[in-house]
Each structure stands twice: as structure tokens, then as C-alpha cells.
Simulated assay, not measured.
Amino acid sequence: MTPSRWSDLDRPPLNAAALRRAVVTPGGLWTALDVVDATGSTNADLAARAARGAPEGAVLVAEEQTAGRGRLDRRWTAPARSGLFFSVLLRPGAAAADGAAPVPAERWGWLPLLAGVAVATALSRVGGVDTALKWPNDLLVTVDGGERKAGGILAERSGADAVVVGIGVNVSLRADELPVPTAASLALAGAAGTDRDPLLRAVLRSFADWYGAWRAADGDPAASRLQQTYAAGCATLGREVRAELPGGAELVGTAVAVDGDGRIVVAPSDGAAERALASGDIIHLTATG
């Protein structure tokens, strides 16, 4: 027998109609919001819609993802209704509805960092959980005094002018459901509440605010204050890190800045010149503070 959506009273289904009324408003960024019981990947589904001409601002939410992906094609799985699993369609390469010009493609790399800022600030405000960012796009919370990953972001280009941004956040995941010991959830981090409806509304509103400011500034991360805000919430800065680079190389040093292109700047431990990294896996080697 297929379990009912109400089989776990701690994990009620999202109210799609109420969410649409709250976030799909005239003149706002969000133009459509759909909730599906299950899908392989909201990013893949929304990219297909983008290819068919879906407008900017489409939001696709899944109660469960069976083939969710993170960076470097890592799998992202979680029990049904235990988190927020959704994607949004942005068209930064097209003129905005309010007349804003297309954003230069070289600045689109800021979109996953923008999403991180939007999600972290919303969860901290509404969920009551201090949320930090690990470059480039992991969401960190503190559980039992240790730093753990509670969510992640994956941005993928779709066609000439579109980007699909996927966001996954563990909300009510229990200790015995964690996929790895370094994972966490808002509940395990002591969240004030785990009702996903207000959390999703807050995240989408925060995202719309940051995206609007970024577009109005022609994608300039400094003029939109995105760069400063990201740096302020980035737990990677000031830490000794090991960067695992494409091709198998490694770099150990101190993360000293996030530059204007969204790259992490590392001062190597061997005294060599600082390097700005656009990609790679970052491992924190020292604790915060």
C-alpha cells in the first residue's frame, strides 16, 4: 500500500494553493508555482519547461526527489516531505518585465551565491537557526557544537538566456535518517519550527528581493551588496582549507576573500601567490572562531 501524504503527521504536505496566493503576485518575480508529489529532479523538469518557453519566475517544488543532484553529480536523497526540494527558473539573459536590461553572462556565476545568501538569511530569520555558507553553495548549521551541512544549491544554465537554480534543504530529517554523519537538518539544529510552508515563502521572498537588486545593478555584486553580504556570511573565509581541484590537484592554504567574479581566493600555505578558484571542492581544515 502506498503511504498517504498524511501518514507522518510531523511532515504534512505543502499547501500549493496557499503558497501560490502568497508568492505569485502581480508584478512580482514569481509567475507560477507547482508542487508535485515526487519527481526525479526538479532541475531537470524545470529545464525542460524552460526549453519549451516557460517564463522567468516559474517555481517547481517536489515533496520527494528520487534522483536529486548536487554539485559534482552527487546524489541528494531524503524522505518524502522531510525538506524543501525545489527549483526556480531565471532568465538573466533576457530583458526583465520591469525593463531591466539583460545581465552580462559573465556575471551569472553569482546566481548560486545569491541563492545561498537568500536562503541563509530567510532560514535564519524565520527558522531561528543560524545558517552559514560554505563556498560556493553549501548551507551549514551547528549541531552538538559541530558544523554540518543542511542544504545545497545547484545552478545550471538552460539555453541561451536561462538558468535553473535548484535548492535542497533538510528541514525535519531525524538523526537516524541522515545519509552521512556530516549531514544535518533544521530540526536537529534546534529550529523554532519545521512548518515548511512559511519557510518556503520566506526563502522565495528573500530570493526575489536579492535577485531584483542584483538585476537592477546589472549583475554587479558590489553595487547590489551581494558580494559584501556573501562574504559576511561565508564560513569558509579566514579558514585553513584544502581545495580539491579538477584533475586531481590539491591546494592547501587560507581562504582570504571572495572576488568580484565569485571565486574563492586562497593564500597557499607554502607562501606562493594567492590563487582565485572558480571551481573545486573545499574542505574546511580548521574550526571557526
Rank of each mutant, 00 (worst) to 15 (best):
R91P: 03
T66C: 03
W30Y: 13
A44Y: 06
P92R: 03
A95C: 12
P79A: 10
L72F: 13
E56A: 12
L29W: 01
G68N: 04
E63N: 11
D45V: 05
E56M: 05
A54V: 02
R74V: 09
R71V: 09
A100C: 13
G93S: 12
A78L: 08
F85K: 00
R49N: 04
W76E: 02
S41D: 11
R71G: 14
D34L: 08
G93Y: 08
L29K: 04
L90K: 04
V35Q: 10
P55S: 09
R74L: 12
A50S: 15
A50G: 14
R69C: 07
G70A: 11
L60P: 03
E64I: 03
P92C: 05
A94L: 14
R75D: 15
A62I: 04
V88E: 07
L84C: 07
W30F: 15
G93R: 01
G53Y: 10
A96E: 05
R74H: 15
S82E: 07
A38S: 14
G57K: 02
L90P: 03
G99F: 08
A100G: 14
F86Y: 15
R69F: 07
G99V: 07
S41C: 11
D73N: 14
R75I: 12
A78W: 00
A58W: 12
R81C: 09
A96H: 05
A100S: 15
A97N: 08
N43C: 02
T66I: 05
A80Y: 05
R81I: 06
R74F: 10
W76T: 01
L90D: 05
L84H: 06
A97F: 08
R75C: 10
T42V: 00
G57I: 01
A94S: 15
E63Q: 14
T77G: 02
D45M: 08
A47L: 09
T42H: 02
L60C: 04
T31L: 02
G57V: 01
R91A: 14
R75Q: 15
A80P: 12
N43L: 02
L90W: 02
G53N: 09
E56W: 00
A94M: 11
R91I: 01
